[in-house]
Amino acid sequence: MKYMLLIYGAEDSWTEDEREGCMRESMAICKELAAEGKWIASSPLHPVDTATSVRVREGRRQITDGPFAETTEQLGGYYIIDVEDLDEAIAIAGRLPPAHKGTVEIRPIYPLPEPSGSCYDHE
């Protein structure tokens, strides 16, 4: 099953050293997952002050500067993995460095019926 792991945390809770350490550790985990055929995609995101939100209402496109919702913990990155079941996803989420400071939310990815549309296919 495919899962998306969403990394939430307060953006100012990391020192520069911690951020670098987190990056190194995360890369190592990605490499290991890739070797097992379980890694599909992952990336950190730029801070929320770079976010742009778009809504179309009554045919008119509205653009606002900022995230969808103002919260103390922001979405800071994601992983997409392909593993056996939720227990394996939980085990991986628990190894990610941000789990120690923030929260990792696990969401199963809704699979599209075959043949799957290419725009959602990460493989």
């Binding site: 099953m1 899962y3 056996e84 079941d85 939720l86 227990d87 996803a89 696990i106 199963p108």
Partner: peptide, 10 residues
């Protein structure tokens, strides 16, 4: 069903 909770003995 949807979250893929396994039927296993941990």
């Amino acid at each position: 069903r949807d979250a893929g909770i396994p039927f296993v003995i941990p």
